[in-house]
Design a protein around this nucleic acid. Structure first.
Lengths: 243, 243
DNA sequence: CGTTCCATTGAAGTGGTTCAAGTACTGTGG
DNA sequence: CCACAGTACTTGAACCACTTCAATGGAACG
């Protein structure tokens, strides 16, 4: 049983730009199927092309690059609504890999149809570009985080941003959200060693800001977390288009 | 005297995707003028919108974000052919600032015409998206650099990449290129303190790999530089579309 | 000829890494 | 049902890459 775009549970969420009826109909034609994968599956591999692009319908994952030395840098975490594979769609190959951290369901779009989308639906093409600009924004923010912030600030901000995203998707129950990643994933995202990441997480726990245990992240003091990270707790999250 | 797109000196360079005659004609109509600015001018400011988008015709600059603490993170260096202001074009405001480091000449496009471009010239719209994906790639690479590489590796790689870009634009004379930035700019790009950046530059000089003096960067041993940075010296640079 | 901006140098301190064990949990096969 | 292996998390201790502070030198500029 495939979810029809008309009933897409994501579109109704705040945080996504509304779509006209016509657009939904087109997306329905554009969507060529669904992909279900288990946790730990590599969806797209750095250096390879892909005949398909995906929008995440459910589940979480991560984008990462592998360095020549074998080290790994997590670029960002993938949440429902994220559009992945654009690089393979417009350039010829992916510049990073994408892997699932939980079971995931993804809407499949054929790469060859991307051109049709640009030709016949400029509004949607605009949204694809908008989406790319949003990704660019997040990468830029992370660059500033890695370049200029301390370990504690980095982890605190990562928690806050993960919580923001979960909130926009309605994934928060009480003050907790699912957090299916490993400490190593977070370490690779914030550019710290596993050991130091672990000690930093404990520091935040002892300060009664956030607790990450049993694959759940509990944020007990969001303001305090933002305070440690040095960011505005009232900042409004970006609205982005759903592809 | 304004440069016509037909005679655009950039389009002929390797490293840019070829354009059809029709595309050139359209770009000519799309181009609404030229902007000349002196060194040290802020072209676009974080948090503000912009009625214009630009393609750099000549000169160099930098994109940066300012953190709440007043610290600065340089996202990347701006070279001729770069398209700036897309974020203000599709989202409502810039998420980073852009500043000139030398005198610059920029081709001006009206933001309001961007929609026309998407509607009437899907090929060009595709190229705008492609360009965004290329920017995303560079940011991703830099993220991995800041997250996982040592100071020496970072500076060596920055030199190598700057040299690559200058090479693709025909800006190299002998083994030297113009390097109009300050050490502080590089420090803010690679995420190191000014002091340590200075000492690292000297280390590369003593190892006879590269010398940065008098606003010129001399690369005496490109292979050695790539070797220190841990990257493949024979990697082919990405071809990107010119907007 | 003072002022300003940028590059350079040295010295002291620290935030982070690396190494090396140990614990806890989970799934697997005998 | 238990022994074992594999994976993730935790802890302590030693080390060093990088930061910060503080001062100096040199070039450009009004």
């Amino acid at each position: 049983m495939v979810t029809s775009c008309h009933n897409c549970p994501l579109r109704k969420l705040p945080g996504f730009d509304p779509m006209t009826r016509k657009e939904v109909e087109f997306m329905q034609k554009f969507k060529s199927g669904e992909l279900k994968v288990g946790a730990g599956t590599t969806l797209l591999r750095e250096g390879e092309g892909s005949a398909q692009l995906y929008t995440v319908l459910s589940g979480k994952g991560l984008r990462y690059k592998t360095l020549p030395t074998g080290q790994r840098q997590v670029l960002n975490f993938v949440f429902p609504g994220d559009f992945v594979g654009l690089q393979a769609g417009v350039m010829d190959e992916m510049q990073h890999s994408v892997e699932s951290a939980t079971d995931m369901i993804l809407c499949i779009f054929d790469r060859s149809d991307l051109w049709t989308l640009f030709r016949d639906h400029p509004g949607r093409a605009f949204d694809v570009t908008w989406n790319a600009a949003v990704e660019e924004h997040f990468l830029g923010e992370n660059l500033a985080v890695l370049g200029r912030m301390s370990g504690t600030e980095r982890v605190a901000l990562a928690f806050a941003r993960l919580f923001d995203r979960a909130g926009a998707l309605g994934l928060i129950e009480g003050d907790e959200m699912p957090m299916p990643f490993r400490q190593q994933d977070l370490a690779d995202a914030v550019g710290l060693s596993l050991v130091h990441t672990n000690k930093t997480i404990q520091k935040l726990r002892n300060r009664k800001l956030a607790v990450w245990q049993n694959s759940r992240l509990q944020v007990t003091d969001y303001e305090g977390l933002c305070d440690v990270a040095g960011v505005d707790p009232d900042a409004q999250p970006l609205v982005r288009p759903l592809i």
